[in-house]
Nucleic acid binder design. Structure first.
Length: 633
RNA sequence: GCCGAUGUGGCUCAGGGGUAGAGCAGCUCACUCGUAAUGAGCAGGUCGUCGGUUCGAAUCCGACCAUCGGCUCCA
């Protein structure tokens, strides 16, 4: 057999993989969970028949982790069967950070049940039961699962192609349909934690019965589990809904579920973002427009939204006419383009719009600013000659790149291609997809392809940014749209004096300002960089005696456009600092006798702590520079 | 929309068939203080909404609303 490092070892035919692992090293024997033999994942208990490339998988390998978690899911199913006999079993795969199993219990699981199940799992792990694989024929498998009354398993088997070999895994008193592989024994599982119960539709379709899904995770070391739990806590600590309330940025009230209210401090961040956005777009040849929120039903019929998007739209009646509240900005943009004749000399025309759209989202999906029923897209529709497409896409990619860098995000790109039910000809799609690819390649960007994930009207490039705790969010997108120019009969007058159809792209950079603010809040854990911070400086006089000088400092900084506050309350300096820190204000200026005498300020930075006293003029200069540069530190 | 959980002063939470409690925040007063909580006092709630059971409901029951965790969908 050949190992990944290309070293070759000889064994008697039929040797078990476990024994090979043992012969290589104790450590490998202890850590190996499964193996890959000639590209196929197998149990360590399987034997080697002839020459093969063998790779042992541990928890450090993605597949190794999946085997580990998947085995844990089986143990959970076994525990559930023991405690709640007769519970239906659906599926139980490994997922990114753990695993789940979908059950059909007689009664819903309670949090207390989870504790019991976890206990039972520990007992199963302690018993160190071997996972035993058996291969069986389709009729045998059907007979077995019918016999034990596991109808979901029967359904799964019936849906499998008839020629695939079926396998089951048994540990102790529990057998489950499974491709495998699994860890050798239940004792290999160490730290297990059940996280939550939730409803989940059988096969993910809301038309099907809702099952009970238990989420859990497992690690080979307690310390790794603790670290995982700590990461979850960290995400909670950064939750923009919690920070949004604490920092008084926004609120969502019962009177408007999914319709956020922006408070003064939230508006400062929002306006800073929009101001930056406007500057950058102006520099890059965009013109800003604003289109109405309510438009006649006929427009939505023309655009196809009436047909394709109606269930997400809000409607109203004006003078007995039917109107809709816009869920997208494009139709409005089309009308602006069409409002007069265009020459090929004008193209590309870049019409940008910070457009407020409303969408009826299901009540159960609303989530702070991340998932709302009205939001502002930083939209733009670019109308071009076919020959301009590639260069224009590169310009948009550059724009997105510049934006994300300012916030300290790294990102990756995905290209989505033609979906099953798409409009337009195969050739147009191929051409468009090629243009997007060429633009990405010209720009030297790596990208992942999502086959069939494009919009029905065209392929798209999506930007997935990565926040400071490693989560990814889809924000920017560039979509080539062949439908709208067609449906709205857009045209420009070409060199030949004839009418031609322009090409259109639709793009956003932030995506939604609301969601982007939510992401920023979590990314920075509420400590916004100075240029965005609602309050940039708070001046803290030590005693009443220093209030006069403190006020002068506030006035002077305020005149320079710095957002500055005075905390003249009759409190100790420690108390004032504590509050300013809690509000994550970038700079606290402590002023007492010394500072007043020397026209200085004692600077405390929220993260760097006490930086000592410097002349006020010097502080002001440094601060303005930092704001101008949009310094993220 | 569906499954499950939750809903008590601005916030965090206790209590629980006999009519509501703490800490923090707020206000007032005293202290005049040098880098993360000075002390004292005061005020603040139709216990999510509506209905039912009961002599009596914040407490038990039901419906609805909202929130949280998921599913599905998505910027």
């Amino acid at each position: 057999m050949t190992l990944p490092d290309n070293s070759v070892r000889e064994y008697a035919p039929g040797i078990l993989l476990v024994d090979i692992a043992k012969s290589i090293s104790h450590r490998l024997a202890r850590e190996a969970l499964a193996a890959r033999v000639d590209g196929r994942l197998v149990d360590l208990g399987s034997s080697l028949k002839g020459d093969a490339r063998v790779e042992f998988l541990t928890f450090d390998d993605e597949e190794g982790r999946q085997v580990y978690r998947h085995s844990t899911a089986h143990v959970m199913a076994q525990a559930v069967q023991r405690l709640f006999p007769g519970t239906g079993l659906a599926i139980g795969p490994a997922i990114a950070d753990g695993f789940y199993y979908d059950f059909e219990p007689k009664d819903s699981f309670t949090p207390e049940d989870l504790v019991k199940i976890e206990k039972e799992m520990e007992a199963i792990i302690k018993a160190n039961l071997p996972f035993e694989r058996t291969e069986l024929s389709r009729p045998e498998a059907l007979a077995f699962f019918k016999d034990v009354g596991q109808n979901y398993k029967v359904e799964l088997i019936e849906d499998l192609p008839p020629d695939v070999p079926l396998s089951c895994y048994r540990q102790g008193d529990f057998t489950d349909l499974c491709m495998g592989p699994h860890v050798p024994t239940t004792g290999r599982l160490k730290s297990v934690k059940l996280m939550s119960v939730a409803g989940a539709y059988w096969r993910g379709s809301e038309k099907n019965k809702m099952l009970q899904r238990i989420y859990g995770t497992s690690f080979p070391k307690k310390s790794m589990l603790d670290e995982h739990i700590f990461r979850i806590e960290e995400a909670k600590r950064r939750d923009h809904r919690k920070l949004g309330a604490e920092l008084d940025l926004f609120s969502i009230q019962e009177e408007g579920p999914g319709f956020p209210f922006f408070h003064p401090k939230g508006m400062i961040i929002r306006n800073e973002l929009e101001q930056y956005w406007r500057e950058e777009h102006k520099k890059r040849g965009y013109q800003e427009i604003r289109t109405p929120i309510i438009l006649n039903r006929l427009l939505w019929e023309q655009s196809g939204h009436w047909e394709h998007y109606r269930e997400n739209m809000y409607f109203t009646t004006i003078d007995e006419g039917d109107y809709a509240v816009k869920p997208m900005n494009c139709p409005g943009g089309m009308l602006v383009y069409k409002s007069r004749l265009h020459s090929y000399r004008e193209l590309p025309i870049r019409l940008a719009e910070l457009g407020l759209v409303h969408r009826h989202e299901l009540s159960g999906v609303l989530h702070g600013l991340m998932r709302v029923r009205c939001f502002t897209q930083d939209d733009a529709h670019i109308f071009m000659l076919p020959s301009q497409v590639k260069a224009e896409i590169i310009r948009v990619i550059d724009l997105v790149d510049d934006f994300y860098k300012v916030f300290g995000f790294s990102y990756h790109v995905e290209l989505s291609t033609r979906p099953e039910k798409a409009m337009g000809s195969q050739e147009t799609w191929e051409l468009a997809t090629r243009e997007l690819k060429e633009a990405l390649e010209a720009r030297g960007l790596d990208y992942k392809v999502n086959e069939g994930d494009g919009a029905f009207y065209g392929p798209k490039i999506d930007f997935h940014l990565k926040d400071s705790i490693g989560r990814t969010w889809q924000c920017g997108t560039i979509q080539l749209d062949f439908q709208m120019p067609e449906k709205f009969d857009l045209s420009y007058v070409g060199e030949d004096g004839q009418k031609h159809r322009p090409v259109m792209i639709h793009r956003v950079v932030f995506g939604s300002i609301e969601r982007f603010m939510g992401i920023l809040t979590e990314h920075y854990a509420g400590a916004f960089p100075t240029w965005l911070a609602p309050v940039q400086v708070r001046v803290l006089p030590i005693t009443d005696r220093h209030a006069g000088y403190a006020q002068k400092v506030v006035d002077r900084l305020g005149e320079k456009g710095i957002r500055v506050e005075l905390d003249s309350r009759n409190e100790k300096i420690n108390y004032k600092i504590r509050e300013a820190q809690a509000q994550k204000i970038p700079y606290m200026l402590v002023v007492g006798d010394k500072e007043a005498d020397q026209k200085a300020v004692a600077v405390r930075h929220r993260a760097k702590g006490d930086l000592g006293a410097i002349p006020l003029a010097e502080f002001e200069e440094q601060l303005l520079e930092q704001i101008r540069e949009k310094d993220v530190s």
